[in-house]
Each structure stands twice: as C-alpha cells, then as structure tokens.
C-alpha cells in the first residue's frame, strides 16, 4: 500500500543516492549563507570590521554563551531545557568571589566554579528525573533561586580583586589574536560535536528527544541520560562563569543577566528543534558566529545593544517562520 514499498527489491540498499540534495536543503547551509551575508554586509558597513584584533575582540561576544549553548543543545535535543544557566553562572561566580577572601589561588577558584556548576546541574537533574517534574518550570524556579542566593550574599555589593593569572582565563591570548576563550570554544565545539554525532550516547539523546516512551521501551535508561545532560549543562555554565568572571574581573549578582534567553535563542537559531529530537552542533556553531557578528557589526555602527536584540529576536522567529510560511502559501491554505 505504501508508496515506498517496492515489492521486487529483495536486497535493500544502505543509502539512496541524493545525499547532495539533502545537504542543499539543510538548515546549516541556510544559516551559513546568512552568516556570509552578514559578514559581507559588515565589511561594507564599516572599514574597521576586517581588522584582525577587532574580529578577535568580537569573539568574546559569543564564546562564553556558545560553550553553554553546546551542552544546552544536547539537553534540548533530548526534549528538556535549562533556563537556569545564567543563574548558575551568577551563583558559581559568587562562590568564587566568596572564596577569594580566604586568599585561595586560581586552581582552587576554577575548581569551586566548576563544582558549583555541577552541583546546580545535579539539583536541576534530580528534580526533573527523580521527581518527574517538567524541566521548564523547575529551571524557571532554580533560575530565581540560584541568582537569588547571589543577591542574598552580595546585595548591591561586588567581589573584586581576582588574581592576574585567573584573569588570563578571560583575557589572555594563546597565540597572536587567538584568545584562550576562542581555543576553549573550539575544543568544546569538537568535543560536543563528537559526543552528539559519533557516540552511542549521542544516538540515545536523539532517540529520547524523538520518542521518550519508545526509548524507554527500547531499554535506554532515559533518566540517566537526562541526568548526565543536566550535569553537563551545569558544568558548562561553571566553565562560562570562570571565563566571564576572569574577563570582567568582578562579580555582581546581576552578572550574565538574561543570558538564558540568548543561549536558548542561539541553540534554536542553530536549527535545534525546541520540541527535541533534531539538531547539530555545527548549526549551533554557525548560529553563534551569526549572533556574534551581528552584535559586533551593529556595535561598530554605534547601534545600541537593545536594538541588536530586536534583530536577534526577529531572526529567531523569522528563520523558523519563513519555511512554514512558504509551505502554507504553497499548499494554498491561508
């Protein structure tokens, strides 16, 4: 009955030809074209854009957020979400600042930053997997809770005086214009790309996001996978907290405010389905570049940050709405 049933074919081929067509229709390509257009537009708009040091500065716009976005992409593909990432960054940064007064060194600061991130991730993960609560509500709660604790500790004060070798993590350069953060970003992009696309664990993430019930019925330990993803997201928030705190050189409770929305936007813009089950790290990387270049380019034109956010918001809705709108017009239903 089905059109794809070919009764004569005894031997089923592994793949059909036409892989090229698939790539041509891919989200990543569309996004890449947008990125190129923005790049060209920026070079036309400002003579300062193509300067190597300027471009290098521009990467700080997205490296920290993108590192969290990689883990978030995995989490969203599995069908969950973590809106508390910016709260985790605030709490983790506060913990590092608090530890400062005991005169601890950079290794201890890093350990504290990452551990707080992991603990926060474990807390989210336990609430979602052990108690079976919806992650969107849980993490709206923990986002207030984590940042709220920072406010309790700091009030309207700030922690300052981070050691210089700590500051290098946020401001240092490994080679010429290549910053430490950019290296970290690249390394994590590769690591997360490999995890998601080349391991059994990554396959399980896709299966869970597509059909959590069938995943359970196939013997996948769904809760364990989700717990690990919450831990990873917490850990990456800790990494971002270390970098951001080092770069800013101070901790205020409002640090990284509203980053959760930018990070989710980055992930969704990167072609990850907010409903779970589909997406790629490559897409998130390109989305990070797009968002970073938009911010930088408009910044060169002295456009205020909030106007850039309109552009990002419109981009988010536009890129998702456009294909659907075309389909709607094509099928003739208004």
């Amino acid at each position: 009955m089905s059109l794809t049933d070919t009764p004569t074919a005894r031997r089923i081929p592994d793949r059909l030809s036409g892989q090229g067509a698939r790539i041509l229709r891919s989200w990543e390509l569309l996004l890449f074209i947008i990125a190129v257009l923005i790049f060209v537009g920026n070079t036309q708009a400002s003579p300062y854009f193509l300067d190597a040091w300027n471009l290098s500065d521009a990467t700080f716009n997205f490296t920290e957020k993108a590192m969290v976005a990689f883990a978030m992409a995995l989490l969203i593909i599995s069908g969950e979400i973590d809106l508390s990432v910016a709260g985790i960054i605030a709490l983790s940064s506060t913990a590092m600042g608090w530890a400062l007064q005991f005169g601890v060194g950079t290794p201890v600061l890093i350990t504290i930053g990452l551990s707080v991130g992991l603990l926060c991730g474990a807390f989210n993960g336990a609430l979602v997997t052990r108690l079976g609560l919806p992650s969107i509500v849980v993490t709206i709660g923990t986002m207030s809770l984590f940042r709220g604790i920072s406010y309790i500790v700091l009030g309207d004060q700030a922690f300052n005086g981070y050691p210089t070798d700590f500051a290098w993590l946020g401001r240092g350069y490994v080679f010429w214009v290549i910053s430490f953060e950019l290296v970290l970003f690249t390394v994590f992009a590769v690591i997360y790309g490999v995890i998601l696309h080349f391991t059994n664990f990554g396959r399980h993430i896709f299966v869970i996001g597509n059909n959590p019930t069938a995943a359970t019925f196939s013997g996948i330990r769904v809760d364990r996978v989700k717990m690990i993803l919450f831990l990873l997201t917490g850990l990456m928030s800790g990494v971002a907290a270390v970098c951001l705190t080092a770069r800013l050189g101070s901790t205020r409770p409002s640090i990284a405010s509203a980053w959760e929305l930018e990070i989710v936007t980055m992930v969704v813009l990167g072609g990850v389905s907010i409903l779970g089950g589909a997406g790629s790290i490559l897409g998130v990387v390109i989305a990070a570049l797009v968002m970073g270049m938009v911010t930088f380019g408009l910044g060169l034109l002295n456009v205020p940050g909030i106007v850039m956010s309109i552009f990002i918001g419109a981009l988010l809705i536009g890129v998702i709405a456009l294909p659907r709108l075309i389909r709607l017009v094509r099928t003739g239903k208004a």
């Binding site: 089905s2 049933d5 074919a9 089923i12």
Partner: peptide
Amino acid sequence: RTYTERLELRAAALDRNVGELSGGN
C-alpha cells in the same frame, strides 16, 4: 540488513525514516 532481510522488509533504503513505511513494515 541481516534482520530486516530475514523479515522480508520492504523499504527503499535502510537510511529511510521508519515513518515512511507502511504499518506492516
């Protein structure tokens, strides 16, 4: 391949989505 051929699965290719198949397949 081993198991789908044993069950005489009818499909265009093994990398096609399961949703494209008929209920029986």
